[in-house]
């Protein structure tokens, strides 16, 4: 009996201690991971031989690690932190070396690199996708989009979109888009069409929300620019501010920027937003 009591009390003491130490450990690990998380990827020259015959499995694991790493850092990434695009590129490069057909990885390249000031990096990876996924219209479509939207190279943009429009599964408007691009400069409508395409593909709720927000903003921008050119037709000058559009009854009120910024008119009559389509933190 006494022995049983001893064992139970010892167990209880240990259990109590575990309860005390576990939150401590959790706290310490959180601190450790916050400052020491390895945001680097081993180059494929090492990973490939190391993974033996499990290259596909390794690519899945690395992509999973990549997703969990970025999951909590999407907000930080927008703060012009130059370290992240570098990590994103090297991680995705390694993953696509292990499995060069892996569309998820290329999709992330477009989502995180192109939309975070590194369209060239995204295009480098997407070129790899083009080499392997020869029947897939998406790689040339994304490259083309990056050329005209981010790099303002309309000629190359239209060339890639043309290539995309010839591949199976491509949408009917690709060819039109490519043709128009060769002639006109960028219009917001093209961005909206592209984002709607991306929206259809994603199952990620966060990404869906982000795309939806961007589409809404682009639609507002498009609408405002149309009104500005209407104003230009009427008065032969560009309005100095959006208030003039309200004054002249072209719009009811200045719309709110979903990202929390303000819409302004530039001298060339184009409308921009002060938020730069990055979510402004609400003041507490």
């Amino acid at each position: 009996m006494a022995k049983a009591v001893k064992i139970i009390s010892l167990f209880l003491i240990l259990f109590f201690y575990l309860n005390v130490s576990f939150p401590n450990l959790k706290h310490e690990r959180e601190l450790f991971l916050k400052y020491n998380f390895i945001d680097s990827a081993l180059p494929s020259q090492f990973i490939k031989p190391l993974s033996l015959e499990f290259e596909g499995l390794c690519s899945d694991f690395l992509l999973f690690k990549f997703m969990t790493f970025l999951g909590g850092r999407v907000e930080d990434m927008k703060k012009n932190n130059s370290k992240y695009p570098k990590y994103i590129f090297s991680a995705l490069d390694t993953i696509t070396d292990l499995d060069p057909y892996y569309w998820d990885a290329y999709y992330f390249a477009q989502m995180f690199l192109a939309f975070n000031n590194d369209p060239e990096g995204a295009n480098t990876l997407l070129e790899k996708a083009r080499k392997y996924r020869t029947d897939d219209y998406r790689p040339p479509y994304y490259i083309g989009f990056n050329y005209f939207y981010f790099l303002k190279d309309f000629k190359k943009g239209s060339q890639y979109l043309m290539k995309a429009s010839r591949l199976p599964g491509s949408r009917y408007y690709f060819a039109n888009l490519a043709a128009r691009l060769a002639v006109y400069s960028f219009q917001h409508r093209d961005g909206i069409i592209f984002l709607e395409e991306m929206l259809k593909e994603t199952t990620d709720k966060r990404a869906k929300k982000e795309f939806q927000l961007r589409i809404t903003t682009l639609e507002i921008l498009e609408n405002l620019e149309n009104k500005v050119s209407e104003y230009h037709k009427l008065f032969d000058i560009y309005p100095v501010s959006l208030k003039e559009l309200v004054k002249n009854g072209l719009i009811d009120k200045i719309p709110d920027d979903p990202y929390g910024g303000k819409f302004i008119i530039m001298q060339n009559g184009r409308v921009y937003t002060t938020s730069d389509m990055v979510m402004k933190r609400k003041k507490k």
Binding site: L57, Y107, T202
Partner: peptide, 24 residues
Amino acid sequence: LFTGLFGHELGKVLVDLNLSTIAF
């Protein structure tokens, strides 16, 4: 469980995991 954690190419992940398990 693991297959559901991925975004698009669930088929690829599923085949990878199953074949790798058999090989292992």
